[in-house]
């Protein structure tokens, strides 16, 4: 059966974001039999977005143009995608599971009277709708969900589909945006870099990271001592920096620093995907966690199922040759 799939293409530089090409790959797979795949690209100036549109290989591209599309708020994106859903009669809309998707997908879904399948890593048509795999309990479990309501809306995890190579679009059309400046109720004022200077975690050969499982700031010396015995730096999960146990510049992950040391030691870290993307490039990963089902063990070379308060001092002792 031919299904119509629509993806969001986000402009970036002269082209579109990498995840836009990943969404296209997912869309072509789901459309089957060469079923139509469309891409919607919101823009304040269609002529300036032509080059970006032309990288969306094989897709029917809709440039939704209007002065209100200068900030990419959820409202702007949802309005553009909504207009494209009407024009294309899409059965499924794919957005990235990024800050853009978090913002736009639920607004779009509310308009379509449905819910969003968020953070999906796979999608499949079923007899009476769509099923998807996602994570629940912060990565501990795979959660299969289904919806019978079309059009469906899904946000797709980055990296879940290999990007479709750039190529020329099947067609490019321009559509006047339904969102006017007067009706717009949210407005981007500025985008800035969150200043994070300090320790150069990314340059360290060894990173020893503390998670919530360390139990409290009073136990962090165990991580510091191990890091110093290994000649490395101290990193942290977001749970630790949010709680103020360590400063924010130590945070590793999607909203922190990305590291790729020779050795990464995760101490009491569960292994949520947002943490894993920040340390996946490490050459050798040791994880210490008392829960044998912790997802961090799926990203580790060696796992120790134990209490950090027992293992860390023992390892530090063994490394420094101090008597136990």
């Amino acid at each position: 059966m031919n299904r119509r799939v629509l993806v969001l293409a986000e402009p970036e530089g002269d082209g579109v974001t990498e995840v836009s090409h990943e969404l296209l790959a997912a869309a072509f797979r789901l459309a089957g039999d060469g079923g139509p795949v469309s891409a919607v690209l919101p823009t304040p100036d269609a002529s300036a977005s032509m080059a970006a549109a032309e990288t969306l290989g094989g897709a029917e591209v809709l440039l939704v143009e209007g002065p209100a599309h200068d900030g990419r708020t959820g409202e702007e994106t949802a309005a553009a995608v909504r207009a494209a859903v009407e024009v294309t009669a899409a059965d499924l809309v794919l957005l990235p599971h990024t800050a853009t998707g978090w913002d736009a997908a639920p607004l779009l879904a509310a308009r379509l009277e449905t819910a969003v399948l968020t953070g999906v890593s796979s999608l499949q048509w079923s007899e009476d709708g769509l099923t998807a795999e996602r994570q629940a309990f912060q990565g501990k479990f795979v959660h299969e969900v289904g919806t019978k309501r079309l059009p469906a809306v899904a946000t797709v995890e980055r990296g879940a589909f290999p990007a479709r190579p750039a190529g020329s679009a099947a067609q490019v059309r321009t559509l006047a945006s339904p969102l006017s400046l007067e009706r717009r109720r949210s407005r981007l004022l500025e985008i800035r870099d969150a200043a994070s200077e300090g320790v150069d975690l990314a340059a360290s050969d060894v990173v020893v990271s503390a998670g919530r499982g360390m139990g409290g700031p009073e136990h962090l010396h165990l991580v510091e001592e191990l890091a110093s015995a290994l000649g490395g730096a101290v990193g942290a999960s977001r749970a630790v920096t949010d709680a103020g146990w360590l400063p924010h510049d130590r945070q590793i992950g999607s909203s922190g620093v990305t590291v790729a040391p020779k050795l990464y030691v995760a101490c009491g870290i569960s292994g949520a995907i947002q943490h894993l993307v920040g340390m996946r490039g490490s050459r050798f990963v040791v994880a210490v966690n008392k829960d044998p089902d912790a997802p961090i063990f799926g990203a580790a070379d060696v796992g120790v199922v134990a209490d950090v308060k027992d293992i860390l001092p023992a390892l530090t002792r063994a490394l420094t040759g101090a008597d136990g």
């Binding site: 399948l117 990565g139 299969e144 969900v145 799926g298």
Partner: peptide, 13 residues
């Protein structure tokens, strides 16, 4: 709109 169909431990590659 969304139905929970199955929850399982992930298979680790």
């Amino acid at each position: 709109r969304i139905r929970s169909l199955r929850l399982a431990k992930p298979e680790r590659a």
